[in-house]
């Protein structure tokens, strides 16, 4: 066991899998010699050779397009898109190619590829370094979408993703890289070394894809969250005193329907939280699932707390970010409904 930041946990996951499986290769912009702008691939080239960890041209569709070809030829590429905001040129290759190659070839060709990308805001990145495009991936059938909220899960989920035989989009909340963040941006930063989930086992282990986890058991309201918002929801729960059951979804697609439905049937209330913009966001899907499957258990409307439907602003970052005050207000609101 070791105390790790999320960056170290992600790096360790790739290192562990590269050590046991020579078919795993890692590449992306600034990923090789330098080790990535967030240092997630630091020392991997030195350790595993430059034919297995290397710099790519600034060409996201090329990075994913070549990774698909490599996966079809028996490798397990794990590529980095420097920021999720830069994935759009690769969206054709992800949504039209990687996602469907198994289906359209009736399983003759498959794409065991992982595409990592830092997501979300909270670092004053402005509109091109802060986006949360998860709904653009969950809408696509044939790919899996994963968002870890802590170092322990990040390592276990990333190993599971690389070893998975289907394409996986791995969204890394960049505000969580160096410590848990509960939305109180004006308070001192807490490092992962002070958090129990910064405790990360050595060597190989997996956290299964498609399985949510209950972070806090509660009786009054179910909070569905992922990534940074898990920590924000925990803070809001503590500050309001509402006995919320907080579910960390971890994998958005395929979704752990049973854990969600069981919880909402128990609590009768549901708040959905994400940092991405609201309209047609992933919260709309979560809300619809809860409404369709748990309607007769509900005692209040399903409520969403999300980023506003604006581009991610720079100066107004904290007015945009759905922090603990907004989540807390939603918790109180659903508790008042009868």
């Amino acid at each position: 066991m070791a105390r790790m930041t999320m960056i170290e946990a992600i790096r360790d996951a790739m290192d562990v899998v590269m050590s046991v499986n020579e078919n795993v290769v890692v590449f992306g912009e600034d990923v090789g010699y330098f080790g990535g702008v967030f240092r997630c691939t630091q020392s991997l080239q030195e350790k595993h050779g430059k034919h297995r960890c290397f710099d790519a041209p600034i060409n996201e569709s090329g990075i994913v397009g070549t990774a698909i070809g490599m996966a079809v030829n028996g490798l397990r590429p794990c590529v980095e898109i420097q920021f999720a905001d830069y994935m759009y040129p690769a969206y054709d290759q992800i949504s039209q190619e990687a996602s469907r190659i198994r289906y359209r070839s009736n399983g003759e060709f498959t794409v065991p590829m992982t595409v990592r990308m830092p997501t979300g805001g909270g670092i004053f990145g402005g509109q091109t370094h802060s986006q949360s495009p998860e709904a653009l991936f969950t809408h696509i059938c044939g790919i899996k979408t994963v968002v870890p909220s802590n170092p322990y899960d990040a390592k276990g989920l990333l190993i599971a993703a690389i070893e998975d035989d289907d394409p996986v989009i791995f969204l890394e909340p960049k505000r969580l890289y160096n410590g848990p963040f509960d939305g109180h941006h004006d308070r001192p930063i807490i490092p992962w070394s002070k958090h129990p989930l910064g405790e990360t086992p050595d060597g190989h282990y997996t956290v299964p894809l498609g399985k949510a986890v209950i972070r806090r058991v509660g009786q009054d309201v179910t909070v569905l969250a992922y990534g940074t918002m898990v920590h924000v929801a925990e803070a809001a729960t503590e500050e309001t005193g509402v006995d919320a059951e907080i579910i960390d979804l971890r994998t958005l697609a395929p979704l752990d329907l049973d854990t969600i439905e069981e919880s909402v049937r128990k609590t009768g209330r549901c708040v959905v939280v994400h940092e991405a913009t609201r309209t047609s966001g992933y919260g709309a899907e979560l809300s619809a699932i809860v409404q369709e499957n748990c309607f007769y258990a509900l005692e209040a409307p399903v409520t969403r707390v999300t980023g506003w439907d604006t581009p991610y602003p720079h100066a107004q970052e904290w007015a945009y970010f759905p922090g603990p005050a907004r989540v807390g207000a939603a918790l109180k609101r659903v508790m008042e409904a009868s």
Binding site: S61, G62, G69, A71
Partner: peptide
Amino acid sequence: VQAVGWAM
């Protein structure tokens, strides 16, 4: 571009 990746 997938052909290039396959070749790589």
